[in-house]
């Protein structure tokens, strides 16, 4: 029982990341009809927002203390994070909370990246075949990840969660089984965060006029255009929102997995599988499939399961995708007629 619960928990944070990326992919596909292979790169860019902020916050000032000398006789260089020098305890607090704070940086940055990407590149590919959309965004993904590689290097850069939530929670105690399930706080935070973001996106689409128009545009773009609404601009914003969602997913994921430049590609392939399983064009399907596959994956990596089916943890997601595509081509919750060939 506790083992099963632990695996479900394990799947939740990964599932949250899958769901967030898949949500963005589906939004872009549903509105603009574009298959965006660079979406994983946006996730990666978000993660590196956190890295960049952390590096900016931990920037050190070097002062030479003439009164003291090192063992070699040269003047002692005193390194001090400038934030601490300037703000004292508050500065230390800022450094500690660099990952959550990166959200504030990531939102405008990712929105900008998303809008530039849509206006500068993607919009020229609406009428082109899907194969060309895949190829050009694939090229863009390579370019983005190589830029990150040349700026931040090829090695993963670990990021710490704030001290407050750095430890582990004894979740078993909540269910009367103290000590049986120890689970890192940050992963719980990540899960809650992903649920929150998903909730915001759904609320935006369902309960605001703006979202309603976007949904109407997804249904019938031409008619919305006839009503005098500049649907293209709204879709551009939606692209930006999708980029923000992917970026935030990346920011918050950094304490779980140290980001490196090919992080995006690793997640992209999986997220596409998630979208396909959930049903191309179905937002709730993407979210459901994200969590489902995350949990399935963590179950498959149990030692008991691996003993029976060796290697299953490596391929379970792909296997599920293959089965779903063959048995129910439109995915779990896909509508009929969307890309169903």
């Amino acid at each position: 029982m506790d083992a099963i619960l632990l695996q479900v928990l394990n799947g939740l944070d990964k599932g949250g990341a899958y769901a967030l990326i898949a949500l963005g992919l589906t939004l872009v596909f549903g509105t603009l009809g574009v298959v965006n292979f660079a979406h994983g790169a946006l996730f990666m860019l978000g993660a590196f927002c956190a890295v960049a902020l952390n590096e900016a916050l931990t920037w050190e000032i070097v002062t030479v203390d003439p009164t003291r000398t090192t063992a070699w006789g040269t003047p002692l260089e005193v390194r001090q994070p400038y934030l601490e020098a300037q703000f004292g305890d508050f500065g230390a607090f800022l450094v500690d909370f660099s990952v959550p704070l990166a959200i504030l940086v990531a939102i405008p940055f990712m929105l900008l990246v998303g809008v530039i990407m849509e206006r500068g590149l993607v919009r020229f590919f609406y009428k082109r075949p899907h194969a060309e959309q895949i190829l050009v965004t694939f090229g863009l993904a390579i370019v983005l990840q190589e830029i990150i590689k040349s700026v931040f290097g090829a090695n993963p850069i670990p990021q710490g969660a704030p001290d407050m939530v750095a430890g582990s929670a004894d979740i078993g105690a909540w269910f009367g089984m103290a000590g049986s399930i120890i689970y890192p706080w940050w992963r719980i935070v990540y899960f809650l965060f992903s649920v929150l973001i998903i909730g915001i996106v759904f609320a935006f689409l369902n309960f605001t006029t703006y979202g309603m128009v976007v949904r109407a545009g997804m249904q019938d773009r031409e008619t919305v255009g006839f009503l005098g609404i500049n649907i293209q601009r709204r879709f551009t914003i939606v692209f930006g929102i999708a980029a923000v969602v992917a970026g935030l997913a990346g920011v918050m994921y950094t304490p779980i997995l140290p980001p490196d430049y090919h992080l995006g590609m690793d997640f992209l392939v999986l997220s596409f599988v998630v979208v396909v399983v959930g049903g191309m064009g179905s937002l709730s399907g993407a979210v459901l499939a994200g969590f489902l596959l995350g949990i399935l994956q963590s179950f498959a990596s149990m030692t008991e399961v691996k003993a029976i089916l060796p290697g299953i943890d490596q391929i379970i997601i792909y296997l599920v995708a293959v089965i779903v595509l063959l048995v129910r081509p439109r995915g779990l919750m896909g509508r009929t007629g969307i890309m169903e060939t």
């Binding site: 392939v269 191309m280 290697g311 792909y318 995708a321 595509l325 081509p329």
Partner: peptide
């Protein structure tokens, strides 16, 4: 035989899934 049951992006993703599967298996179980 399996992938060609679908066309378009589904076909691309299916082949990608199979290739990733083989790659992962080659690194682990095989």
């Amino acid at each position: 035989f399996i992938s060609l049951r679908r066309a378009g992006i589904y076909f691309s993703i299916l082949t990608l899934a199979f290739a990733q599967m083989s790659y992962n298996l080659a690194y682990s179980v095989l």
